[in-house]
Design a protein around this nucleic acid. Structure first.
Lengths: 235, 235
DNA sequence: ACAAAAGTGTTGGAGATACACCCATGA
DNA sequence: TCATGGGTGTATCTCCAACACTTTTGT
């Protein structure tokens, strides 16, 4: 027989930000609650329950904006996490009691990864729900709930899609150098590339177009700038 | 603010079956209901609401067994479908009223694809919830809800994972010929392979091991049999 | 003997890898 | 003039694609 027990559904966003200093992930620090002085406040991924009439991606966009003020971020669903006990850990209980009307309710969450360029404006995310920060991927400590696992799943998805799905430009400024592109590939895929071979391959991609423009104000030979042509992405 | 509106969560299983006659998908025919004589009964994917205390994959296994009597099927999550109107289509209303206590409730569904070999025992799925059938992928007509979309998403996932994830053996008998393996690749990836080149590639895979055994009772030169070694899968 | 699928090697071209030096700029 | 990263070509090797005939079995 079918049952009709309700449960809760949330979205969690793993937003990756890239600049020349490395690959970061966007975390929010849980506010310390009145009831809870035992454990120090934890970090977590931005996420929240979805509303009854909104689509999943719509929910991810809304939640990300509400918690971090970021808008227009490329978001892609990658995996859904549904362990019945994923929000039942002791360390997470008191925080849940402070923000949820039904803190004991099971929550299934749909994971989205997001991509942002930190080059130009370094989007200082703001939040009334607690402080928000870009954390170097190497320096991410223990997170609330199963968020370390979600982060790791997002990283896997990013790695496997970076080349095939032409999403690298979401992590770069509109105008970028080939060194920046290569640096991005090296950080995400965690391996080194040969400069000359890398550039040969890029020249074969018809969606990377050279501009009549160079870097300015750098202490070395200025690099040519390139941009992505979103229309050429069918190769 | 957070809301606590409950919604329903289901799993849907896209089970692919393969044999020498092609690639099939497992569908169930909705039973005609008392109230509903207007439209003829539709086909749909096996799926149902998850229970409050079971994991997602666990739910997929249970639902698949309850609806089709199949057990021990390889299952993998591929995508979650959450359009707020995905079960609101007129064509699906009366069937929902006959099986659900809250037929108007929004349902988000987690999609799993499954893989089964139809070679040896041709698992005749049985069901008390309606008749169950293996339908040739080319001949799948309009399905209930958004199940055509789910099927198409599962097919994409299967195509992109067939080579990289070493899952082809789930669709083949324990002992198989290289022609069967090639046929599988051709049907799933929808392209032809050169026999000699294909075999050269297979010989490089250390998880495909030749047996000291040949086909019997065939009207042509009997083929050597091979099997997969699940332990060797890390190449 | 015939039909039907199994099995087997070589060659040419494309693509990947490895590698080292000169250039333009700001300090 | 020096330090810094930008930019370039060639030789080799590996990998992939194309291609046709002989073998074994059942009827």
């Amino acid at each position: 027989m079918v049952t009709n027990d309700p449960l809760h559904l949330s979205v969690d966003c793993v937003v990756f930000g890239y600049n020349d200093t490395g690959l970061k992930v966007l975390l929010i620090n849980q506010k310390e609650t009145k009831e809870d002085h035992s454990s120090q406040p934890m970090s977590q991924l931005p996420g929240d329950l979805i509303l009854l009439d909104e689509g999943l991606e719509e929910a991810a966009e809304r939640v990300l904006f509400e918690l971090t003020q970021l808008r227009g971020v490329y978001l892609k669903q990658f995996q859904t996490f549904g362990d019945p006990d994923r929000v039942k850990d002791l360390k997470d209980r008191s925080w849940l009691r402070s923000v949820r009307t039904q803190p004991e309710q099971r929550v299934v969450t749909v994971g989205y990864f997001g991509l942002v360029s930190l080059h130009e404006f370094n989007p200082k995310p703001a939040s009334f729900a607690g402080s928000v920060q870009w954390v170097d991927l190497q320096k991410v400590g223990p997170l609330a709930f199963d968020h370390n696992e979600i982060l790791s799943g997002a990283m896997d998805a990013l790695q496997s899609q970076l080349e095939s799905q032409h999403i690298s430009f979401e992590l770069l400024p509109k105008k970028f150098t080939l060194s920046q592109l290569q640096g991005l590939y090296e950080v995400v895929l965690e391996k080194k590339f040969d400069k000359r071979n890398f550039r040969k391959n890029v020249k074969k991609m018809n969606h990377v177009i050279p501009l009549d423009e160079k870097q300015q104000g750098v202490m070395h030979k200025p690099a040519q700038l390139f941009s992505f042509n979103r229309d050429e992405i069918e190769s």
